[in-house]
C-alpha cells in the first residue's frame, strides 16, 4: 500500500480554526464523528437496559399474577403525570438543541434550565413514590433491614416485581442524575462561548442522551404501571 504523500485540500486551514481538534480534517468530519460516537454509546445503553427488560419479560411470563398484583400497588395517575413531565423535558431539550443550532447562547441555557426543572419535578415525584412504597412495606431490600412485609407478598412473584420496579426505575433515575451532572457541564461549556452554530455537538449529544432516558421511561410506564390497570384487583389494593 505505497502511498504518495500530498497535501489534501483544506489541510493547512485547520490550524487556524479554534473549534477543530488537531486530528480532524474539517468541522464536518468532527461533527459527524461526535454524533456517531454518541449513537454508539446509546446503542450500548440500549443493550444495558435491554438486559433488564429481558429479565423482566421472563419473570412476567413466570408470574403473571404476581406481576399484576405488584403493578396494582403502583399509582397510575402519578405515573402518567410523571410521563407527561418527562415528555415536556424532552421537548425543552429539543428546543435547547434548536437554540444551539441557531447560535443563541441564552436560548440554550434557558432551555436546559427548563429541562432540568422538569427533570427535578420528575425526580421529586419519584422520591415521594418511593417513600410511599417504603411506608407500605414494599421495599424488598432485606439486607438493609427493609423487609418486604406488604400483604401482597402472599402472591408469588409480587416481591420479584418490586425488585424489578426498583431496579429499573432506580437505574433510570440514576441516568437522570448523571444527566443533571452533564447539564451543568454543558451550561458551563455554553457560558464559555464554546457552543456555536458551527460546533454544538456537546448540546446535540446531551439531547440524544436525554431523549434516550425519556425513551426508557416510555417503555417503563406501560410495563410497570399500566399492566395491572385492567385486571381484577388481586390483593391488598389500598389507594
Amino acid at each position: 500500500m505505497v502511498s504518495s504523500s500530498a497535501a489534501v485540500a483544506g489541510h493547512d486551514d485547520h490550524h487556524h480554526n479554534p473549534h477543530l481538534a488537531h486530528h480532524f480534517e474539517d468541522l464536518q468530519q468532527q461533527r459527524e464523528s461526535h454524533a456517531l460516537g454518541m449513537w454508539l454509546f446509546l446503542a450500548q445503553e440500549f443493550m444495558f437496559f435491554g438486559g433488564m427488560f429481558g429479565a423482566y419479560t421472563i419473570y412476567r411470563y413466570f408470574y403473571p399474577v404476581g406481576w399484576m398484583a405488584g403493578s396494582q400497588q403502583l399509582n397510575v395517575t402519578i405515573g402518567a403525570a410523571n410521563t407527561v413531565v418527562l415528555l415536556c423535558s424532552s421537548f425543552t431539550m429539543a428546543m435547547a438543541v434548536r437554540a444551539a443550532q441557531l447560535g443563541s447562547k441564552k436560548g440554550v441555557i434557558q432551555q436546559i434550565l427548563l429541562t432540568m426543572f422538569f427533570g427535578s419535578v420528575f425526580l421529586v415525584v419519584k422520591y415521594f413514590e418511593y417513600y410511599e412504597k417504603f411506608e407500605h412495606g414494599l421495599m424488598p431490600f432485606s439486607t438493609l433491614g427493609l423487609e418486604f412485609t406488604n400483604v401482597v407478598k402472599e402472591v408469588p412473584g409480587a416481591q420479584l416485581f418490586f425488585s424489578f420496579y426498583f431496579g429499573m426505575t432506580g437505574m433510570h433515575a440514576l441516568h437522570m442524575v448523571i444527566g443533571f451532572g452533564l447539564f451543568v457541564w454543558v451550561i458551563i461549556h455554553t457560558l464559555q462561548g464554546k457552543v456555536t452554530p458551527e460546533k454544538h455537538s456537546v448540546v446535540e449529544n446531551m439531547g440524544l442522551y436525554w431523549h434516550f432516558v425519556d425513551i426508557v421511561w416510555i417503555f417503563l410506564f406501560p410495563l410497570l404501571y399500566l399492566l395491572g390497570l385492567n385486571g381484577e384487583p388481586v390483593i391488598g389494593v389500598h389507594h
Partner: peptide
C-alpha cells in the same frame, strides 16, 4: 464490545444488587 458488553454489565449489576441489597433476581 458495544452490543455485548452492556448486557454482562447489567447482569453483574443485578448480581451485585441481589447480593448487596437482598433483592431476589
Amino acid at each position: 464490545m458495544i452490543l455485548g458488553t452492556p448486557v454482562i454489565a447489567v447482569t453483574l449489576l443485578l448480581l451485585m444488587l441481589e447480593r448487596g441489597l437482598g433483592i431476589g433476581i
